[in-house]
Structures are given as C-alpha cells and as structure tokens.
Write a protein that binds this DNA or RNA. Structure first.
Length: 425
RNA sequence: GGAGAGGUGGCUGAGUGGUCGAAAGCGAACGACUCGAAAUCGUUUAAUAGGAAACUAUUCGUGGGUUCGAAUCCCACCCUCUCCGCCA
C-alpha cells in the first residue's frame, strides 16, 4: 500500500513512479477523494471538539447543581443534540469516501525501484549472470518422459482424484520430493533462518496484507463456508505472522524459512505447461522471508537471493540470474531477481525462484513496524523461494538423465535420498 | 456441534454512564548510587491522522444503535479460552 499522504501531496510523482510499470494509473481521482476526505475530517474534528466541551460542561453542571431539569440544562442538551445530528451526517459521508479510497488505494501496486531496469514486459528483463554447464547430449528426454518411465508420478490418475494440473508423486518421486524439502530446510536453518510451518489456510486480511487481495482474488482457491483461502505462497502467512506488531530493532533482521504447500488457480494459463511438474494447482515450496530495518533492505535483497542461489549450486543445476524489469514486476515488489533453472528438454531457463524486495509495501498493509530513533517506522519485507520443489525435481531429472534411462542425483542430495541414482524398479 | 467465560496500552490486569486515553504491576528508556555491574531509588514510556509546534481528533475485538456524554447500556457479527461431544 502506498502512503496516502504522498498521494495527496504529490500525486504527480506517484503517477510518474507507477507509470514505470507500463500502465496508466489514474491518481487524480484518488487524490480528489483523499483531499475531500481530509476536508471532512477537519470539519468533523472541530465539531467533535465543540461537542465534547459542551458535554463536559453539562457533566459539571449536573454534578454541581441540584436541579437536573433546569431550562438552562435542557437548552444545553438540545444544543448537544444538534451537534450529534450534524456530526453523524458528516460521518456517513466520510464512511462512503473511506470505502472508495480504500478500494482504490489497495489496488495500486508498489513503486518500482529506481535500480530496476525499465521495460515493458518479460522480454525486457536483464540477464545478470549464468552459472553451470548446459547438458549437451543427444536424445534428451523431458522430465515428463523420465518421470513416466521411472514411475515417479502420475498425472492421469490424479485427475480422478481432483482435476487436471494436480499430481500424485509415487515411490522414488515422493521420496525425492521429501528429500529436497529436508535438504533445503537444513541448509537454510544452518544459515540462520528460523523454520516455521504455518497454516495452509489463510484469511482475507492476511491475503490483503501481502498484496494478493483485493486485486487477485481470481488466482487463489476460496473455501465456500469460511473466510479462508488456500495459501498461494508461504509469503502470505509469513507476512501475517507479525501483523500489527512493533518489532524490537535489536531483533532485526528476522529471517524465516518455511516449507508449505502452495495452491494457485492458474487462471488464464490454459494450454500452457499442461504436463509434468512445471505448472500445478498445488505444489510444494520452501520459502525464505526477511523482515529488516528499512535502511538495510538493499543488502538483505542481495543476501536472500544468494541464499536461494546456494541451493541451485549445491544441486549442481545450471541457472541464470535475471533482473526483472519495471513492467514485469509483481504487484507488491519494488525490485525482483529471478533465478531460472536450465531445462535441457525445452532448451530454456524456467523460473524456479523469485526474490523480491517489497520495501514497506506489505509492512504498511499489515502494519509491521519497528522503533527507529524513538519513532515507529514500517520495516521492509523480502521474500524468495528457496526453492520451488516441483520445478527443482524437474530440473534434477532432466539435467541428471543418463543414456541408460536412469537419473544421477547431485552429491549433496545423496544423504537425503539414500542413493546416487534413480533407476527403473 | 452443545454449555459457559471472556476480548482493555509492548505485556499482565483494574475499571459498569460524566475531565477515563484509562489505576496498578511487569517490561523498556533515561538519571542517581557504583571503579563497573546487580540490587535500590527517581523520572519518563500507547498508537493513528492532521499540524513547524502548541494542540486537535480518533482508537478499550469489529460494525451499528441509545445518550448532551459510552471502555461502561442495547443489537449484530468475529475471535479466544474452559467443559462436554466428535475426531488425527
């Protein structure tokens, strides 16, 4: 959420900043509303001040005089009643305005960082570096083919259980998923992250706090009888975990790592990545999350990204680091580095982690603050996958495939999985 | 699901119509004492919005209502706890 004061006092700069995202945002209208709201605020506040003084006078009058029905007293009460009617009329107006402003302001995305490359869409993203060697072999199979031939998962049978875009992991597939989760959690907790296992169902307020609502209600699954949604990412419960708190500056930065299942409707992606582990309604993810001093989020962003990167290196997976351009930035983010893993079957890089600095955007929506120089200030939040498990598995299968149909696993994973190879049963 | 209790500042907790934004305690900050620390004593210490500031307003789960005046009374909703039932 953006600062209302900023919108009121400097609407042009707000508009200009947001326009870097490549869309037109009509701040003038919101500005008009916030100014009007302010005027009414002032009017109400002065009426309330008068009415309060009058009430105190009546109170004193009653306690000092014997006659509780004197004409003077009746007169004062009548005057008080007039105040009340006036105030409640104004409050009604104010309530309507409040709703309108809220509605508009919660739909505004975060400002892009000045450091983010300016661009229109994903084609303008900037590759910062690549790491690792690409697999150069003939007859490369996709992870779907490998998974099917080694009986690691079954998506056809899963449609019986749910519908398309759900998967059932089987045998070594399930074992590999479990190994990856444990492996990643172990690495990150050793690096100073506190492990959390939050609820998978989150309420509307939590989704609003991290930025998924109100704008993206189409992208999450909602429970019909409760104000609860299936969490699309652990970022949601992790943001909400410290909602409405003032965090002791000595405790910063707070670093969380959480494994969680993630649920996304993937509306509008029909026909894309329909097979395999790449795009599912339900997937597992290990998420990294920081709450940090607002003056330190730039370094924190580097750190969280390199913490995510370290997993790819340990798993010997070739990847590249991409600086997301202003037009492709997520709603809550001011700067995002994507980690994209190499998938040899499709000869391209696929997003496996998205490391974002949300600045004070989520902290403002969720009211998470810290004391700096005796003043309460919004902290900065950062999040990054460390990593998406399903896509990691896909990458391991494709990059570790052997001519005999087996898959060689990265050394680091062997203690977790229990052997070096996945072979046909 | 049934019955009951309750939701008050960073925390605990008092407050049932009138200077109550709210006692007391804890915690925290500062000061004194000390070579230093602990202990002790003293002072300070809620948030939000507006304002340069003085100050003004709002906030006692949320939303309505009664009243000149509501933490306190009325209505609705949400949440938490305890017991019972069901259940991993």
């Amino acid at each position: 959420m953006l600062d209302q004061k900023l919108i009121r006092e400097n609407p042009l700069s707000v508009e200009e900043n947001l326009s870097l995202r490549g869309k037109v945002y009509n701040i003038a209208h919101i500005n008009e509303l916030t100014v009007k709201k302010k005027e009414i605020d002032i009017e109400i506040s002065s009426l309330q001040s008068d009415s309060k003084k009058l009430s105190k006078l009546i109170g004193q009058e009653i306690s000092t005089s014997q006659n509780h029905d004197s004409p003077e007293l009746k007169n004062l009460k009548k005057k008080g009643n007039e105040y009340r009617i006036k105030i409640s009329e104004l409050e009604q107006k104010q309530r309507i305005l409040d709703k309108e402003v809220e509605n508009e302001i919660y739909n505004l995305p975060n400002f892009p960082s000045k450091d983010a490359p300016i661009g229109k869409d994903e084609n303008d993203n900037v590759q910062i570096k690549t790491w690792g060697d690409h697999l150069k072999k003939e007859n490369i199979k996709s992870h779907v083919e490998i998974g099917e031939s080694l009986s690691l998962f079954d998506s056809i049978k899963s449609t019986k259980i749910s519908k398309s875009r759900f998967i059932t992991l089987i045998g070594n597939g399930a074992r590999l998923e479990r190994a990856l989760i444990n492996f990643m959690l172990d690495i990150h907790t050793k690096n100073g992250y506190l492990e959390l296992m939050p609820p998978a169902l989150v309420n509307s307020e939590s989704l609003t706090g991290s930025g998924q609502l109100p704008k993206f209600s189409n992208e999450s699954f909602k429970c019909s009888n409760d104000d609860l949604w299936l969490s699309p990412t652990a970022e949601v419960p992790l943001t909400a975990f410290n909602k409405n708190e003032i965090i002791d500056p000595k405790q910063l930065p707070v670093k969380y790592v959480a494994y969680s299942p993630c649920f996304r409707r993937e509306a509008g992606s029909y026909g894309r990545d329909t097979k395999g582990l790449i795009r599912l309604h339900q997937f597992n993810k290990v998420e990294l999350y920081w709450l940090c001093d607002p003056s330190k989020s730039l370094e924190a962003h580097q750190q969280i990204t390199s913490d995510a990167e370290s997993i790819l290196k340990k798993l010997e997976l070739p990847y590249r680091l991409v600086d997301i351009c202003t037009g492709d930035l997520g709603f809550s983010s001011c700067r995002t580095f994507d980690l994209e893993v190499w998938l040899p079957s499709s000869k391209c890089y696929r997003e496996i982690s998205s490391c974002s600095n949300c600045w004070d955007f989520q902290a403002r929506r969720s009211s998470i603050r810290t004391k700096i120089d005796k003043k309460n200030q919004f902290i900065h939040t950062l999040n990054g996958s460390g990593l998406a498990i399903g896509r990691t598995m896909a990458a391991i299968l494709e990059n570790g495939q052997q001519p005999d149909g087996s898959v060689k696993l990265p050394e680091a994973l062997v203690p977790y999985f229990g052997s070096n190879f996945i072979k046909t049963a």
